[in-house]
Design a protein around this nucleic acid. Structure first.
Lengths: 207, 207
DNA sequence: GTCTATAGAAGGATAGAC
DNA sequence: GTCTATCCTTCTATAGAC
């Protein structure tokens, strides 16, 4: 049998991405074999190489696609939000939590598999990560300038906020005791408190 | 040659732990081979099995030892701190940052390699993680009760604080632009702001 | 306590049939 | 576009010499 009846290259390529994403997230890039992925896709191992030159590229493409989605999604969201730092910050908090909960697997990979990227691929992904952090930084900077926030270090505040928001995906369960809306509210309040005095007493702004 | 001159079993066991910790942190458990570890230790692969029954146990022992150290260290630190929620929280923030920066490798493993633990080992480690989160939770609870904090969900606040503090180790470089002391100060202020209104407006306390 | 040697399984990737 | 078959490497873990 040469080709499966009803097989479809486009579709298989998509299925491959989905399967690899799930498996990498669950077991880790290094722990997943091409054979495992093939089984999940429903083809033989050799057939995978029609859709990716190698395993490393597969990982890179998943992470790169995710970062592009993330950046595009936030820029779209931001465009719909009034040009006020506090409103933009609140929108960012809601956006980040929601986006990450919808894509638990990609996020997990994006944060956990950086070290399994080749040096050049790492550089490319890292740039997009910094780009995203910078977008939050812009909001914080503007809020500081207008006197709405009181942050002494924009970079550290960006890191702290992104870290605490991303952390949600490590424990969130759809059937847990808290609804997504409630979680967003709680985190919103914590972030509001954080930016209200995140370094005010430490001294002059350094960033 | 049967035994290396001057070889020492106790010492080799220790060197093995250190080497495995470093390599697991750098490349990930699944990506590191027993041969790599042996090379780092300076023995042949087979000799490792004198000190660990298998690779999985090696990982578990590293993580378990780290959690024990972490819990013991915080309890010692707490004992030296006045019985006041705000002071204890501040001490916790300083402690967590400092402890984690001194042990970047262990921390990295503790957070990244959970999924590579066997089911039973995972349960054991997870219990100690929850125990640590609970110790922060106690402080937050006490602060809420005394009216010093204004948190609507103790668990979420614990998660958020630990996530943002642990995040420091993902970007901290000893030779960076900020000193450890300065970083501690900035995070302290952010945490102060966070607990001051981390959910106050959301409604009644639920935890 | 460490070595060499190796068993036995699994890995990534390719070649060529259909 | 997918399969089968396979090459070659690497892996964990063990056996037995010293």
């Amino acid at each position: 049998m040469a080709r499966k009846t009803g097989s479809d290259g486009k579709k298989t390529a998509q299925v491959l991405r989905v399967a690899a994403t799930r498996l990498f997230a669950q077991y880790g890039y290094a722990a997943v074999s091409m054979r495992q992925i093939a089984t999940e896709v429903g083809v033989q191992a050799g057939a995978l190489y029609l859709y990716t030159p190698d395993k490393q590229t597969l990982l890179y493409q998943i992470m790169d696609g995710h970062m592009d989605d993330l950046l595009a999604a936030w820029r779209a969201e931001r465009a719909k939000t009034p040009d006020d730092p506090m409103q933009q910050l609140e929108q960012f908090v809601r956006f980040h939590i929601r986006f990450h909960l919808n894509r638990g697997d990609e996020i997990f990979i994006a944060y956990m598999e950086l070290r399994n990227l080749s040096a050049e691929n790492f550089t490319l992904i890292e740039a997009k990560r910094r780009e995203y952090e910078g977008l939050l930084g812009e909001i914080l900077q503007a809020g500081n300038r207008l006197g709405h926030f009181s942050l002494c270090d924009i970079k550290l505040s960006s890191y702290a906020i992104i870290a605490m928001l991303t952390g949600v995906s490590t424990w969130y369960r759809g059937d847990g005791r808290l609804s997504l809306e409630k979680i967003e509210e709680v985190y919103l309040c914590m972030v509001r408190g954080l930016v209200a005095q995140g370094g005010a007493r430490v001294g002059a702004a350094s960033a």
